[in-house]
């Protein structure tokens, strides 16, 4: 039997705010939420090797969906399919099925990949700010779109940094190098950079795996805030994180989707014995 409550007390509790989610979300996710991403029978190949088999799942709007599973189960691959980051890898392709965002098949040759990526932002496992100033990092996405107005850029920088709960920490050193920030700040800067271009969906690929507990708590708090505006898909190895932050959870194993349901269901009452074994920590 999997018991999620009581959670072990976090070793360090940030004094600023209490952790937002104790277990699974108190209110069950709205089942009527519109599915903004529809993944239909998707197979994915790296060359001849098949990494994903027949994945089907719908991701609802303005909710946090977590992908969990042991290493190599294909969860990051699927995440990177959603903004076609896998295009950068030679020989990688969706070999069957469709991924639709807002009803449009994103692998359709008519789809503009630039526009897709503007709408589907991404935060990576290792924080990767550009070796530029904080200000330039945030405005990069807008500048390459041709936005030149200083006032507009200033406004976006403030809004994005506030959105990423970073404004108060860095407002006095916007023009210093982003590489001088702490790891947690850098990751939140990357989130701010992603939301500066006003996407619909934010993909997060293990965003906290390189962060200490305090920084992790801040990012999780941030995720909770961000879901009011954005649809969030998060890949995580940390099951407690999935339990704390997400509304729905998908469990993958060996390239297959084993179970996909409300987070509460997955953790409290999983239908599949493999899921139960994994979430209770017996394998993986």
């Amino acid at each position: 039997m999997v018991t999620l409550a009581p959670m072990p007390e976090p070793t360090v509790t940030p004094s600023a705010a209490p952790r937002p989610v104790a277990v699974a979300p108190a209110a069950p996710a709205n089942p009527a939420a519109r599915a903004v991403i529809e993944i239909d029978d998707v197979d994915f190949n790296y060359g001849a090797a098949r990494a994903l088999h027949d994945i089907t799942l719908n991701i609802p709007e303005r909710q946090v969906t977590a992908f969990i599973g042991p290493s190599g189960c294909g969860k990051s691959t699927l995440l990177r399919c959603l903004n076609r980051m896998n295009d950068l890898i030679d020989g990688a392709r969706v070999s069957a099925g469709q991924i639709r965002i807002d009803g449009v098949d994103i692998n359709d040759p008519r789809v503009d990949i630039i526009e897709l990526r503007k709408r589907v932002g991404m935060v990576f496992q290792k924080s990767n700010p550009f070796p530029k100033s904080i200000y330039e990092n945030i405005t990069y996405g807008l500048r390459i779109q041709g936005q030149k107005s200083k006032a507009r850029l200033d406004e976006v920088v403030e809004r994005s940094l506030r959105g990423a709960a970073l404004w108060d920490e860095v407002k006095d050193r916007l023009h210093e190098s982003a590489l001088g920030m702490s790891g947690g700040q850098q990751q939140r800067l990357c989130i701010a950079r992603a939301i500066a271009v006003e996407p619909e969906i934010i993909l997060m690929d293990e965003p906290c795996s390189a962060l200490d507990p305090i920084a992790t708590a801040k990012v999780e708090e941030l995720i909770h805030e961000l879901k009011k505006q954005f649809t969030i898909v998060i890949v995580t190895h940390n099951m407690q994180q999935a339990a704390r932050c997400s509304d729905r959870t998908a469990f993958f194993y060996l390239g297959k989707l084993v179970e996909y349901a409300d987070t509460r269901t997955i953790f409290m009452n999983p239908a599949n014995p493999q899921t139960e074994a994994y979430v209770s920590g017996r394998f993986g």
Partner: peptide, 19 residues
């Protein structure tokens, strides 16, 4: 990761190279 971050923000290949 720099390149990926740039692409993920909707930059073209040329913009990524130049900037």
């Amino acid at each position: 990761s720099f390149k990926e971050a740039s692409f993920a923000l909707g930059a073209t290949r040329l913009q990524t190279i130049i900037h």
